[in-house]
Write a protein that binds this DNA or RNA. Structure first.
Lengths: 185, 185
DNA sequence: GTCTATACACAGATAGAC
DNA sequence: GTCTATCTGTGTATAGAC
């Protein structure tokens, strides 16, 4: 196995940051190249086209959420409230890293109605997130009520993330987390 | 005043639909031209550039919301609950016309961090919306509590609109409206 | 695996005729 | 006010050398 200066993994990680900040259509391969310190040509060695890069980014990000965030929900030995708290903190670290925003929500709004392929990735992510919240809430609520509450929580968080960006006020998302915790009191 | 086949107003109205559905960066002048039945050249007779079109679209849309939605909040002769109900119905008509989505939320996520000019339009819109909700809620809550509740309601609605698009399930936004009405019971 | 060079398409924008 | 034609820049993508 010879040396490879920049791994595919690193390209994905850097591309994730650019896509999350700028969105899909606004981001050019030139920008991705500059951000990774490579040239455009390299990207076509690793990926078929621009959309394939985005797909890998979303797949990797979803996987990261699964490991670092969603998994917390299923540690049934911990009390529900504790899991909720930890899961919120874990997701918050990701959603507020460098800037405030969720690449899946951004992508959903930017490409829905249009690119069916990418839409599936956002759908998968939100379903997994909803399942995680639902699992925690089922310790106190009936399954269907728990599912609706999970959706409400996600809507609250994502909506608040929009408002954080609009008003440049981080407190908005903190209050959303407080409301979320109130569901387990 | 000679005949003008297509008024600026009509161009804005059609452009609004395309921008709302496709987003800013994905929409091309060619598409706007086709949608209005005109050619690209015509747009540069009316507007300085693409961003100027978007600015006019947002300005006009904000103005439309002010007249059709926000104004309801200030009809103090009506009971608060009645105003809330009517305002939700009015905004829902706009946000679910043709497709589900809010052009201001879409634009905020797509262009924030970047275009400062357009960001101001989204900020103005959300402030006006918040003020309207706050005014209604102040009939039952302390001013600061009313403002926080107004923000929560907007976050809930916008977050739910994302989830409607992701899951293709209209019921999600209807439940957000029910939660909103619960604040005045 | 990375680079340079380049092809190709198309977007935004302008000029000028009608 | 609308059109056609065109310029210019830039974005995606490919080819081929190192």
């Amino acid at each position: 196995m010879p040396i490879q200066k920049t791994t595919k993994k690193e390209i994905i990680a850097t591309s994730y940051q650019v896509f999350r900040r700028q969105g899909y259509h606004r981001t050019t391969l030139e920008q991705l190249a500059k951000a990774t310190g490579l040239t455009k040509g390299v990207f076509y060695h690793h990926f078929k086209n621009k959309e394939a890069i985005m797909q890998e980014v979303l797949r990797t990000s979803h996987s990261y959420f699964s490991t670092k965030v969603f998994s917390i929900a299923y540690q049934d030995e911990l009390p529900a409230r504790e899991r909720m708290q930890q899961m919120i903190e874990a997701s918050n670290r990701i959603l507020t890293k460098d800037c405030y925003g969720c690449i899946f929500a951004n992508t959903a709004l930017e490409i829905n109605h249009i690119e069916k392929e990418l839409a599936q990735f956002t759908r998968d992510f939100f379903e997994a997130w909803e399942k995680a919240f639902t699992h925690i809430l089922e310790s106190e609520y009936q399954p269907n009520k728990a599912r609706l509450l999970a959706q409400q929580i996600i809507a609250d968080i994502e909506g608040s993330l929009i408002l954080v960006q609009v008003h440049q006020d981080k407190e908005i998302i903190m209050r959303a987390y407080e409301r979320t915790m109130k569901h387990l009191e």
